[in-house]
C-alpha cells in the first residue's frame, strides 16, 4: 500500500516535471523534493533523521549481552542468528547482531583512519570484541541490523550504500573519547556487528560508548 502510494506520487511527479531529471524516493514530507541534492546529501539527511530518533533506541532496546552472543555462536552461526540475529531477506545475506556490554580496553589503535579498540568483557585479559572508532568505519552493520531499513524503499544500491556510510559517519561523530592511551580504561558500549562465520572476530560499530567505573 505504501509502495502503491509512492508510485502514484512518483508518476504524478514525473508528469509534472516533464523532461526534468527527478530523483525518486523523496523524503516523507517532501521538503527537499525540488532541491537538486546529491545522493550523498540526501542520504546524510536521511541518516540524520533516523539515527538518533530510531536507530540508537532500537539498538538499546534489542541489544543482547555480548557473552550471550559468544555462547550462542558455539552452536553455530545459523543457530545464533535464528535466536538473536537480524538479516535481510536476500539469499546469502550474513547475520547481523545488536550487542552490548562493558569491559576494559586491552589494546587501542588510534593512529589509523580506521581506529579501533579491543575490549575484554569477561575479565580474562583477552579481547572479546573490537569496537570501531573511525573516522573510517567499515561495513554496513548499522544499516543491516535495523529491521526498519528496507532496501526496497531505496532507489538503488548506490543510494543504499551511501545510507550505510552516512549512518557510520553519525556513529563516528557520536564517539567521544578521552585523550591519550585508552588501554586499561573501562567502557560501556552498545552497537551492531555483522558476522559471516561463527569464528569471525566481533567488530562492533558503536551507537553508545561511555567511559565507566570498573
Amino acid at each position: 500500500m505504501r509502495a502503491m502510494t509512492a508510485i502514484l506520487g512518483l508518476s504524478l511527479g514525473l508528469t509534472a516535471l516533464g523532461a526534468c531529471k527527478i530523483v525518486p524516493n523523496p523524503e516523507p514530507g517532501g521538503e527537499n523534493a525540488s532541491a537538486p541534492q546529491s545522493d550523498e546529501d540526501r542520504m546524510a539527511a536521511k541518516a540524520g533523521e533516523i539515527y538518533t530518533a530510531q536507530l540508537v533506541p532500537n539498538v538499546s532496546q534489542k541489544a543482547i549481552d555480548l557473552p550471550t552472543l559468544t555462547t550462542a555462536l558455539q552452536g553455530g552461526l545459523d543457530a545464533a542468528g535464528q535466536a538473536h540475529g537480524i538479516r535481510p531477506q536476500a539469499e546469502g545475506s550474513p547475520w547481523n547482531f545488536l550487542v552490548k556490554g562493558q569491559g576494559t580496553v586491552v589494546e587501542a589503535n588510534r593512529k589509523s583512519r580506521g581506529a579501533t579498540m579491543a575490549v575484554d568483557v569477561t575479565g580474562d585479559k583477552q579481547a572479546d570484541v573490537t569496537i570501531q572508532l573511525g573516522p573510517v568505519i567499515k561495513g554496513t552493520a548499522l544499516r543491516d541490523a535495523a529491521d526498519f531499513i528496507v532496501f526496497t524503499d531505496y532507489r538503488d544500491q548506490i543510494e543504499f550504500a551511501k545510507l550505510a556510510r552516512a549512518l557510520n559517519d553519525r556513529a563516528h561523530q557520536a564517539v567521544q573519547l578521552p585523550e591519550g592511551d585508552l588501554t586499561g580504561k573501562t567502557f560501556r558500549f552498545e552497537g551492531a556487528t555483522t558476522l559471516r562465520s561463527a569464528t569471525d572476530p566481533v567488530l562492533v560499530v558503536p551507537t553508545l560508548l561511555q567511559e565507566a567505573t570498573p
Binding site: 536476500a90 539469499e91 546469502g92 545475506s93 532496501f151 526496497t152 531505496y154 544500491q157
Partner: peptide, 25 residues
Amino acid sequence: QLAVEQADAYLKNGSTGVDEKQLMD
C-alpha cells in the same frame, strides 16, 4: 535460478514471501 523459484512461488501462492528488492553478496 532464484528469480525463477520466486516466479514459481508467486504464480502458485500469489506471493514470493520475500521483499521485492534483494541484495545478494
